[in-house]
Amino acid sequence: MNLPISTSSGAGLALAAVFGLVFGILLNRGRVTDYNVIVNLFRFKDWTVLKIMFTAIVVGGIGVFAMTGAGWLQEYHIKDANLLGVALGAALFGAGMVLYGYCPGTGVAAVATGSLHALMGFAGMIVGGVAYALSYGWVKENLLSVGALGKVRLPEVTHVPDIAWFALLAVVWVVLYRLLPKGSTPLASKG
């Protein structure tokens, strides 16, 4: 089998279904399709989201690092570090996430668990997408051009090698694992 498989082939679409299915199951069983669990992260009352994300980053990152070292992966898939645009966008994203109670992936998944307000937020996301497309010309010219470093990675910017970064992340993971309280927001009877 030759990898990678083209995403426009039938096999590619079938794989998209399998990957999506697994992702949706993991999001639901990780309880991040629950509004209360996500909002309570930002109130320091529930650490589930951080546990999931940080573990995914450490496990995913070390695996991708190893596969890149072995020559199985040839390229990185990262976004431009437009410092102003990323920072402003992330600030809007964080505010929107608390108001909505979901992010795009968990929102889509939550709709399928019966969350009607997640569906309403999905409609909001559509409007946000249209608004961005309409304002893109201005945003690109005035915001995305500020502090545009390109597709850069921490090892290049800091001259600290990949392996040291992953060692640091692994140490932080151990500290979080030991410090963060167990348990999460109880399953609420939804209304």
Partner: peptide, 8 residues
């Protein structure tokens, strides 16, 4: 919230 989220 959804609109702000996706714009961001």
């Amino acid at each position: 919230g959804g609109a702000i989220l996706l714009y961001g």
